[in-house]
Each structure stands twice: as structure tokens, then as C-alpha cells.
Design a protein around this nucleic acid. Sequence first.
DNA 1: GCGCGTTATGATACTTTCTGCATATCGGTG
DNA 2: CACCGATATGCAGAAAGTATCATAACGCGC
Lengths: 132, 132
Amino acid sequence: MANELAPGRKLKTRDLAPSDLADLKPRSKIWIERSGEVVMSDWRMALLEAIARTGSLAKAAEEMGVPYRSAWQKIKESEERLGMRLVDTQCGGADGGSSQLTEAANDLLFRYRQLSEGISELVDKRFRESFC
Amino acid sequence: MANELAPGRKLKTRDLAPSDLADLKPRSKIWIERSGEVVMSDWRMALLEAIARTGSLAKAAEEMGVPYRSAWQKIKESEERLGMRLVDTQCGGADGGSSQLTEAANDLLFRYRQLSEGISELVDKRFRESFC
DNA sequence: GCGCGTTATGATACTTTCTGCATATCGGTG
DNA sequence: CACCGATATGCAGAAAGTATCATAACGCGC
């Protein structure tokens, strides 16, 4: 159980169990910044997609498992940082309101999907080559 | 300057300036986890390399621009999570003490470099293809 | 016009992480 | 043995990011 060290030196902290590098997992993340601030990421993409799918920011937030407040804030952040509208919102009305993506948002999503596609898989492959 | 919206609907917030998607920058990050906790990353790699280069955790921390406390903590974290020694430390002595990487750390660094090499460049390339 | 569901937004609390400071220990050297 | 410089570690406070709560506005239908 104890790790062997150079003779004559004793451990200051408890010995650590030797590991076979098992169950290590590679992780990767990409995003897009403007002036050092995030404007698009996998999470934000998922949120935008949920908005497109449900037609509602409130429903999208619930789908994503985050408070409406947070979802709204993230959208506003991206919009301000990009200097463009991503969501076209309708406040009030029969159903209370609705949200849909702007053309700019759809364009951005399309480009971002191209950018991010397969990156995670590549890292996984690299990991298998280097660590297995 | 103002974004055009569907006629008859007025903006709730100030109009946003249209953007040409200029000066967007792709960013990427990879790391390795065990049980959902970080054990290696670019930052940790740089720290380990600084330790190897300087032979001292204190000097490495200064080189990295972080307090000794933080550097030490990160090393301990990785060691505990991995279940192996990464740094072989000498406390006291003529020069006050020293630190050097274990074989396990060198092995891990070697593998991690292989894993991470060129990922950032690939993302840059992808970005140019998708956004330019 | 009242209710309902949604967008919009401020204020506050909470969580997690990082930083700063303080203190102890270690072990050669003068 | 006292000193020095480095490791080792606790703890309180700062800072950043997120969640919670509360409230207002909106606009259609009954």
C-alpha cells in the first residue's frame, strides 16, 4: 500500500496508494469570446436550441434545469457582448409571451456547431492513444 | 444603428448595434479528471514544469504568479485525487528545501503533452473555416 | 378590467474558489 | 544552537459566479 521513497526519507503526510492511472477521463470544452468574455459555448448553444424548440425562455430554462433568471441573464450577456439580438421576445398575450431565435442566432448556432463538432471525440481518441 | 424588428413591436431594452462577428476568438481547454475532479490541466502542467525547472515549489509559484499557498494546494489536490506522488519534496537543509518531480509526474506530463498537443491550433483552424 | 403566463430585472443569499496572513517544521550552515 | 530559506497547513476574508426571492410590466381572453 505504501509508496516506496528514497531510503532515509520519511513521508510528511500519509502514504498515497499507488495508482494504475485507471478511470481517468479526458474532458474538453470550447467556447467563443469577444473581448475576453464568453459569447457562445456548448451550454449557451443548448439553451438557444431549447428556446427554439419550446418557443419559450421559461420552458427552455426549466428544460435545462436552471432558474429562469440565470437563463435570461446568459442570453442578455451574449447579446450585449455580441452587440446583436439572439432572441426575439414577445411579452404578454394569450399564452403570456414567447421567444424565438433571430436569424443571427441561427447563423451563429450553425457556425458554432461546425466549430465544435467532433472535438470532444478527438480528445477522447487522443486520450486512448496516450493513456491506454 | 438600430436593429430592425418586426413592425409594430417596440424594443424593451435599448437597441443593440449590429455586429459583423468581428474579433471573435475561439477558446479551448482540456483537462483530465478522476471521479469528476481535475487532476491535470494546462495550468497544472505548467506548474509542474516550473517545479522541474526551478527545483522549488516556492520559485515555481512565483514564476506562475500565484501565491505559494495556491500552488501547493493544487499539487496536493492532484496527488490525492490521483493517489500518487507527483512531487518529491525535501524540507529543510542548506537551501531551505527543494522539490522535484517524481517519475510518475514525468510520465503523466509526457502523456498529457501528447494529449493536448495541437488541440488549440485545431480549434483555431476550425474557427477560421466556420467563421471567416 | 381581472387573471394568467411569460418576459424583465433588482436585491440578496449562498457557494465555490482564490488570496493573505500566520505559524510550525525541517535540516544544513556558521 | 540560532538562523535561514523552503516546505506544510490552518483559517479568515475577498472575489466571482450562481441561485433564490420578489416584483413589475405586458397583452390577450374571459
